[in-house]
Design a protein around this nucleic acid. Sequence first.
DNA 1: TCTAAATATTACTCACCAGTAACTTGCATC
DNA 2: GATGCAAGTTACTGGTGAGTAATATTTAGA
Lengths: 212, 212
Amino acid sequence: MTAALPDNHVPSPFRTREQRSAERAEKREAVLRAAVRMFNARGFHATSLDDVAASLGISKPTIYHYLGNKEQVLIECVTRGLELLSVAAEEVRAAPGDGLTRLRAFLHRYARLMMDDYCRCVVRTGDESLSPEGAALFRARKRGIDQSLRALIADGVADGSIAPVDVRMAAFMLAGALNWPGRWHDPAGPMSPEAIADALVDLLIRGLAPRA
Amino acid sequence: MTAALPDNHVPSPFRTREQRSAERAEKREAVLRAAVRMFNARGFHATSLDDVAASLGISKPTIYHYLGNKEQVLIECVTRGLELLSVAAEEVRAAPGDGLTRLRAFLHRYARLMMDDYCRCVVRTGDESLSPEGAALFRARKRGIDQSLRALIADGVADGSIAPVDVRMAAFMLAGALNWPGRWHDPAGPMSPEAIADALVDLLIRGLAPRA
DNA sequence: TCTAAATATTACTCACCAGTAACTTGCATC
DNA sequence: GATGCAAGTTACTGGTGAGTAATATTTAGA
């Protein structure tokens, strides 16, 4: 965290412009982090910004100094989560391999991400918490990820590495199964996100029927 | 709806005691039905009892005439949903057949139920909406259903009709995949609950990998 | 040293909503 | 027909929480 300092440098209590701007960004980040944790634990409506502020040892107007209003706090949180998922989707789509290999890679990353605070917030946030404009944006970004997922499935069906399934329905099924950990996973629990992702992806690809 | 009437009977505007009691039950039911729809559409916290009352053309105190408080409204709704799921679980557990056959039957009924208002409410309601006592009861009943699901999977693994999977993880995966329609399914959409259930169960049993 | 911006606070306003009190009307039974 | 219960109403209370105004304090920089 600390940058390399010149010889015999006594750390100055005075900050440069960049340091101040970085500090501001860090504080903003801390607010979002505290907020997303509370939203996930207690729900958006049941969490007051006073609570969030108190958990950081500050007062509510300080939050308004960094973020416009309560909805913007939520939007920033879900946007961060959506960004993580989108990046995963893009990277996998650009990778080589047949449909099933790439789908498996995506599912694995998706499952692990679902145990991240911001991604959990994406799954736990319903449209009803947002204003019409916010909800429209939210839906659009989710649709983008869903379409990446469908494209991967369609590729696999086309190249024969995936069984000839209904693409839309398969995408719903996979999303449901992989979103669920966002609701029940306990970070303090015994299973690591990695192990959970392994097990889930394997079950989804192979199914429950015994292999002949 | 109307009972068989004696010859030449002119319907009386006066109700018997049973009729009045049935009417009361019917009105109570209508309140729950209107409430669960709104809870599903807008979320519990975002729905006021004034809104629910207005949608029925009555006033809020009337709701309190039939139900104790807002939480009790929610509890009645989720209890109805849990009851439907429990009954399905019990019937399937009592039925004959190998593990896979019975599991498939349960999954199918579960998937269809998930498109019922009360069952959707079960999935969409988080513990945070309830008081500690309410949440404990809610969790206990959900655990019961989960254990039925696990028992069915374990039976199938034992008799060889299901691949040797991790039972806990498989139960999580199945629940996630089947709960999801409760969030996205649009009753006005083109696919019937029956068709959705068929497709999902098939995907879950067979997996995405091509059959050899 | 003086000023302006950034950071934070206390102390409010305003709206919404759960829940209640007190009252009205109508039906049913004695 | 008097009495009492059931079903509703209007009009309130009280609490909570989003968002704001006014203000204090620190720090950067001229």
